[in-house]
């Protein structure tokens, strides 16, 4: 079969060029917007981690920093209020309160109330996801590298009998899905 060469009239050519120009312009605008967004808006976001529904991993959601409130209390409040997407599950037991915190040389010491322990559902998986959802959320901040957890001001062996809380904890990559 012979190849038929398509001939375009000048009118058609002009139209095609116009479409191309518009497309290019839109792309450029989008690119600029993207750059702008990255530079000016992403800094206002924090990451908070929740459990996946199958309780195998942690996955983060973004939240806007509330300039009026304390950032470190806000992170725990966000963890407590739970995820926005339906495939995720909250990890903080009811009645939990972050009583106070202290930052020492890139380590944050979080002091929780007794209910954080008493109302916890237990289990290795349960404990792991609760503790590391907190640890991963705080250590996503540039200024925090490790997290220590206290209950009512006291050092504890573990929250519910598994995880070693006598040492500071670092960001847990293995539990983080998709990385």
């Amino acid at each position: 079969m012979a190849v038929k060469k398509i001939k375009l009239s000048p009118e058609q050519k002009r139209k095609m060029l116009l479409v191309l120009r518009v497309l290019l312009l839109t792309a450029a605008v989008l690119y600029l917007l993207f750059l702008f967004y990255n530079n000016y808006f992403l800094d206002d976001k924090i990451k908070v981690y929740f459990s996946t529904e199958n309780a195998n991993y942690l996955k983060s959601e973004k939240r806007t920093i509330n300039q009026e409130s304390d950032l470190y209390f806000q992170i725990f409040d966000e963890l407590k209020s739970g995820p926005e997407s339906s495939g995720l599950t909250a990890t903080i037991p009811a009645g939990s309160q972050l009583l106070d915190y202290q930052i020492e040389d890139k380590m944050i010491i979080l002091n929780f109330n007794q209910a954080f322990r008493d109302n916890h559902w237990g289990g290795s998986t349960g404990e792991l996801l609760t503790i590391y959802s907190i640890v991963n959320s705080y250590t996503s901040l540039e200024e925090i590298q490790t997290v220590r957890i206290l209950i009512e001001g006291k050092e504890v062996e573990s929250l519910v009998g598994h995880l070693d809380l006598t040492q500071p904890l670092m960001y847990n990559q293995k539990l983080t899905e998709g990385s």
Binding site: A55, T89, P93, W121, G122, G123, S124, T125, H162
Partner: peptide, 17 residues
């Protein structure tokens, strides 16, 4: 020897740490 727990009653299975 332990038994596991999570705040979702559907979660189940065996794991070794």
């Amino acid at each position: 020897i332990h038994a596991n727990s999570f705040n979702n009653p559907q979660t189940g299975g065996v794991e070794t740490y």
